[in-house]
Simulated assay, not measured.
Amino acid sequence: MRALDVGPAWVVEPTVHQDARGAFYEWYRAAEFGAVVGQDFRLAQANCSVSRRGTLRGIHFAQVPPGQAKYVQCLRGAVLDVVVDVRVGSPTYCRWEAVRLDDDNRRALYIGEGLGHAFLALTDDATVSYLCSEGYAPHREHGIDPFDPELGIDWPADVEPLLSEKDASAPSLAELERLGLLPSYAEAQAHYASLRR
């Protein structure tokens, strides 16, 4: 596992075993995850989305506590997965990192509580599976404009974005901060401490 600068987030690069029958790999190992992250991953919900090329989902985040950690993998096709630090007071506040997830590299991405998450489908039928530490709770979940100039995410210019009405009308980071809806770094740190082994 490799840590991202915007954390707590890690890229998981599995060993893929291939032969004439196809391929096999382990995309999640609880013991390895716990040793690196310092906590167990509590599975509360599993989601799968299938997206046509250009579909942009997010930026989504949940209030902390409890937040919602995600363990994401692209099972078919390719996506550009983006993690954004939206924790007010964090040393990396407003910073983002992008990771390509696809059915060749088989990478997975762990995104801790308090971080924003989005992905852009780079192929048709991009199939993304993600495990969630908490179930969907609309009253604690929010979205940020993925084209907010304050974030300046470098989305690929050759892909025409297709957004849901909800994502297209999401407020800016500054507006969410003004409304007090962003998680604070201090609250997130306290929550992480409560999850440690």
Rank of each mutant, 00 (worst) to 15 (best):
G135V: 14
A126W: 10
G152D: 08
P171Q: 13
S184A: 09
G112R: 05
E175C: 00
L162T: 10
K166V: 05
D125V: 04
D158S: 03
L182N: 00
Y192R: 05
E187F: 06
P161A: 12
E175M: 04
D154W: 01
A190K: 13
A170R: 09
L181K: 14
L120P: 11
A126D: 09
L181N: 11
G152R: 13
A118N: 11
F147T: 01
T127I: 02
E165G: 10
A121F: 11
Y136G: 10
K166R: 13
S133T: 11
E177I: 08
D124V: 09
F119V: 02
E165H: 09
L115P: 07
F147A: 00
E187H: 03
S169I: 08
A168V: 07
Y136S: 03
L122T: 02
A188T: 15
E150G: 05
E113A: 15
L122C: 10
C132Y: 01
F147S: 09
A157V: 14
A174P: 00
F147M: 07
V128T: 07
P161K: 12
I144P: 04
L173T: 00
E150D: 13
D124E: 09
E177L: 13
D148M: 02
P149V: 05
G152N: 07
V159M: 11
A188R: 10
D145Y: 02
P183Y: 07
R140V: 06
H191C: 07
D167R: 06
G143T: 08
E150A: 14
A186P: 05
P149K: 03
I153W: 03
Y192T: 01
R178I: 05
T123S: 13
L173F: 02
H117Q: 00
D158N: 14
R178Y: 05
E141T: 03
E113G: 02
V128M: 07
P156M: 13
D145F: 01
E150F: 06
S172A: 01
S133K: 11
G152W: 06
E141G: 06
R178K: 13
L181G: 04
T127L: 10
P161T: 03
A157S: 14
E187C: 05
A121K: 09
D125A: 12
L120T: 10
L122H: 06
H139A: 14
L131C: 14
P149N: 01
S184T: 15
L182M: 10
L173R: 02
D154G: 13
A121M: 02
E175T: 14
P138I: 10
I111N: 02
A190M: 09
A121C: 12
G135D: 10
D148L: 00
L179N: 14
Y136I: 14
S164A: 05
R140I: 12
